[in-house]
Design a protein around this nucleic acid. Structure first.
Lengths: 182, 182
DNA sequence: AATGACATGTAAGAGGTTACATGATTGT
DNA sequence: ACAATCATGTAACCTCTTACATGTCATT
């Protein structure tokens, strides 16, 4: 039993708006990226599979520049498929945090090097925090326009908490490492 | 350029103690698991590769039960390899949080179902928090015995922050979803 | 003339999961 | 008798990343 989550990410993104593969990628990068990233080499083949299975339909449109684009729309079948998946228990969270390994084995290198690593980590998460706040503001501004935004906002708030605690940990840890130096 | 992180996880675990593949797996599950999981089908082949490359050596021992076990030890070469890796910038963090997708697309299902999902998420993270606290206590109790424990403790504290904010988010979100019901 | 956005894809390889396979010893 | 722990592995499959490949249009 293969449960291909990529399919459901795409169905979810198409659930209230038709889009091209290119558009789907943009939504993933700007909204889901840090918590469920996928890329073109997964998106395009999966779109064809979903179409073959009847969950979405394709129509060829021409954009403002006169270029062809394949616009995909969810079908009722696809919407049901999505809903069924939403009811199933979510898979446990998985994380790959290389920095935790590098700090955990940290007695092998100098404090200066560790501080550098933590600072880079901090910067990554500050950047992602800013991104999350931008998304939050966008969603809040459109809360009355679409009920879906409320739920996306709940989801994004978890991201905000994660990134905040990452920055927080980094600050504490840099201080600790610095005081150890003396 | 393949940078196989599994190799470095293993070198890191072997850096201050010789162990079997079975032992390495236990360390991963009990200490690194939530932030960098690997399993037997990665561990055993990688041990053989590291041995072939001269980073570790194998010797066959017999345990208290009289069973054979392959005990691996890090070499100087392996320690240098580990240190070089520790100095390289850590790869950006990656997360797979299916729950965020399920909440994000949540207007498709009932509030009751969403609350169930968030509760399950909460329970997962409460369990992991307890685990992290147990590890913290173990490490704190042995802080003077081994300098390495100090760094592992720093690393584990990030885990504690993550799980705490997950539980926190879950509580807030369950309240929000319940009040929406009425 | 160059850059960035729009647009769609493939191939190869690396990384990771799950199921299978086996067998001894220890504790309840 | 049964479950847990110790111990080592393979095979098949799925997922994911990276590099390659191409072309248009709009803006600077």
């Amino acid at each position: 039993m293969k449960e291909n989550t990529t399919e459901y990410v795409i169905l979810g993104i198409l659930r209230n708006k038709s889009r091209t593969g290119y558009d789907i990628n943009k939504v993933v990068k700007t909204r889901l990226g840090p918590f469920w990233d996928i890329n073109y080499s997964q998106i395009y083949p999966t779109l064809r599979e979903l179409e073959k299975g009847g969950a979405i339909t394709k129509r060829v449109e021409i954009n403002e520049r006169g270029q062809n684009r394949n616009v995909y729309s969810i079908t009722n079948e696809g919407k049901n498929k999505l809903k069924e998946w939403l009811l199933k228990p979510a898979k446990p969270e998985k994380h790959k945090i290389e920095l935790m390994l590098k700090i955990g084995f940290g007695e092998q290198v100098s404090n200066t090097e560790l501080i550098k690593q933590v600072q880079a980590f901090r910067e990554r998460h500050v950047a992602q925090l800013e991104n999350v706040y931008r998304i939050e503001n966008e969603l809040k501004a459109q809360l009355d326009q679409n009920e879906a935004n409320y739920f996306m906002l709940l989801s994004v708030e978890l991201g905000a908490k994660f990134h905040l605690s990452a920055v927080d940990w980094a600050d504490t840890t840099i201080t600790k490492l610095r005081s150890r130096d003396k």
